[in-house]
Structure formats: structure tokens, C-alpha cells
Design a protein around this nucleic acid. Structure first.
Lengths: 106, 106
DNA sequence: GGGGCCGATCGATGCGCGTCAATATGCCGA
DNA sequence: TCGGCATATTGACGCGCATCGATCGGCCCC
């Protein structure tokens, strides 16, 4: 760089930091999956805004361990909350967290 | 499912379609990477809202082929535009496309 | 208390992706 | 026309992740 012409003038080291980019990417990776997008969508459209695994498993057509894995990823990303009521586990969205994700995209 | 109690009533097959989830996930995967997030951020903060590869390569500290690869991914996702002026390639954001991505997240 | 169902965890497998070195392409100046 | 530079492409490698079958812990009901 900085060879013959007006390209590559030691431009701004600006932009977001490495650390911020890392954490933002982790959050975005959680939603950058077709199965997880469908899970979020189904939970949002369910009665009372919540759904249990026995509803979600047949809806996405994958094995129960796989669905449980995706729900864990979404939970750890803070996008959904888990509440165990009796035998069943119910999941609901965390809208504020979705708002944070949107804010990352400029 | 549909065993003893009020869980698992053939709930809505609702939510987004498989195809829509697939295409949305492809778009989100493009930004779910720390390097690409930084590239977008650096381009946005650059003078005139555009930057060339020779600026971006030292800024992210990766090899030139790797940066070129990430820029191709972002270009194919419609998030940035490429314009070749002489020897150098200049990239600028496509704000409308970023808006579309935000719209995916409810 | 025991059988049975819901959900989570574990271990293994296969594919996708980020990265780099090497090479190709295209453009400019001498 | 030739040499050099900026960028793109190719091939290969290694890691991470999505998926499944098998298993485990918990809760309910008979």
C-alpha cells in the first residue's frame, strides 16, 4: 500500500473494535440459522406468545435432541426465555434482545 | 405428543416458511462474522463512505485473499457495492439492504 | 413406589466455512 | 511492449457446527 497514488492514505483505524465485533457476531450467529429463525417465528405466532418443545419438534421436522440444542443456543444468546411448568418446558421471546440485534446493523 | 394434558394441541403450523427461513439465514450469515462486521463498519466510517482493499487489508490484519473473500461474500449478499476505478476496487454500503436485514428480526 | 413420558446431555459423524500460500488476471507507467 | 502492482481466484487445511441415536434426570399418574 501507499505506493504511487492517492489510494491507501493511512485512513482511519476507525470502525468497531475487535472485541465488539466478536460479541456482536456471536449474537448474530444465533439467528443466522434457518431452523432457529423458524423457531423464533413459531414461538412469536403461538397462542400466548409461548410454545413447548413438543410443539416445536414436529413443526420443524427435526429430532428432539436437535431442537433442544437450537433452543439452548437461542436461550444462551438471550433471545428466548425458558420456563419449566410441570413436565413441559415453555419458551417465549425476549423482544428487547431482538431490538439489540437490530441495533447492531448500523 | 398429545398425551395426557393441554400441551401439544396441534398448534399453528404458522411461522415463516422453510424457504423464507433459508434465504433470510443466508443473508444473516453474511453479517454474522466478526471480520465482515468490522469491514462494514470501516467502510461506513471512511471518507466519502467508501474504501478500497488496500485500506481494509491492514485495518483487519488478515491476508489480502481473505479480505477479498469476505468482500465477495458481502457483495453477493447485496450489502456492499464494488466499483473498480483504475487499479483499485472501491466498496460502499447499500443502506437499503441493511434495512432489509433489520426487518427480518421481527 | 413403579412405569412412562418430556426434555436435556453425550458422543460421533459429516459438512460448511474461515484462513492462507500460490497463482492468475487486469491495469498502469516506463 | 514489458515489468510491476492491486485485486481476484484456486486448492488445501483445520476447526466449528448441525444433526442424529443413545442415554440420563425429572415429573406425573396409576
Amino acid at each position: 500500500m501507499t505506493t504511487t497514488s492517492e489510494c491507501c492514505a493511512i485512513t482511519t483505524p476507525g470502525g468497531m473494535s475487535r472485541e465488539q465485533a466478536e460479541t456482536s457476531a456471536v449474537a448474530l450467529k444465533a439467528v443466522a440459522d434457518p431452523v432457529r429463525l423458524r423457531l423464533l417465528s413459531i414461538i412469536r405466532d403461538s397462542d400466548g406468545g409461548e410454545a413447548c418443545v413438543c410443539d416445536l419438534t414436529p413443526a420443524v421436522g427435526l429430532s428432539q435432541p436437535t431442537v433442544s440444542h437450537h433452543l439452548k443456543v437461542l436461550t444462551e444468546a438471550g433471545l428466548i426465555e425458558r420456563e419449566k411448568r410441570g413436565t413441559w418446558a415453555w419458551f417465549r421471546l425476549v423482544p428487547s434482545r431482538l431490538e439489540e440485534l437490530r441495533a447492531i446493523l448500523s
